[in-house]
Amino acid sequence: MSAIATQLSPAAALPKWLAPLLLIAFAYVVIPLIGNSYLFEAILLPFLALSLAGVGLNILTGYAGQVSLGSAAFMAAGAFAAYNFNLRIEGLPLVASIILSGLVAAAIGIVFGLPSLRLKGFYLAVSTLAAQFFVQWALTKFSWFSNNSASGVIDAPKLSIAGFEFDGAVGRYLFALTVVVVLTFLAHRLVTSQTGRNFIAIRDNDTAARIIGIPVLKTKLLAFAISSFIIGVAGVIWAFAYLRTVEPAGFDLDRSFQILFIIIIGGLASIRGAFLGAALIVVFPLVLSRLGGFLLGDLFDSGVLDMSQRIVLGALIILFLILEPDGLVALWDRVRRRLTLAWQSS
């Protein structure tokens, strides 16, 4: 960070990294002071996990242009791998089991990314469904993965790093936040690097990319691996920090679609987009239920809520695809530009 700051003139450097830094500082210092456990448990923890999954999928779909419907499978792979590493290897530090579980998810991602060498677009999306169904089936079928628990549901272990316990809602929030910040920073570095530009080149025109000598096959598989790594770690956060349980049913096709919607609504090929999209997806049902309860009273029961959520979300996605294909990020940038202009002219 400091190296970047010294290179640029202060005026040019200020907006670039200051805003994220202030946001991170706010998230670390202010939110733990003012937040209640509802905020952490119901909003921030799922938001962080889904944001990270969105960042992961955006690398694959937004940047490298490979559509995937298997995100939840990679989350499940990460979560179950972390659980088993933690369970079966005595004294393995939590950080190590998280990294190892990410690597397991990456390996599975490479295997299910192999069809991308021949398939594109819609056909590839359908073939990634195989990952979704296979992983869920394997985790249900072989009870070894869930340590032979009768219900298939297992409790996540305590979160502790170097003797420091991340207890309670705030502790788990800080743990998730740290993982998300680190991985998001690395993802940002990746997409602005030569490799990230190769991803975009393959997305925009893979024949031209091949002709100018970008190793297309290797780069596609790399995109699957890195994306699955990040999504796998997001699965660990989802299971260990948010739900505190690990079960295959939580990582179904709906979850995959949810993550895809996050990046479509938030903005493809944008790291910020994943966070904006996740915020909308997490906050929106809560707002809807409050609003519905307020307007309709007892009529608005959980059945109606569930149905109206799907309807409104569906309408929202269609609206975004038509009116703002570049997602919330584009909307955000436009509003900010207008405000800056208005502020300058006043």
Binding site: Q194, D204, N205, I212, G213, I214
Partner: peptide, 20 residues
């Protein structure tokens, strides 16, 4: 067959990607 999502500079620089 340009890469639409990249800047002109990055497009041109990508012509050297094979040497990376």
């Amino acid at each position: 067959a340009l890469f639409k999502g990249l800047s002109v500079l990055d497009n041109v620089a990508s012509g050297l990607a094979y040497r990376t």
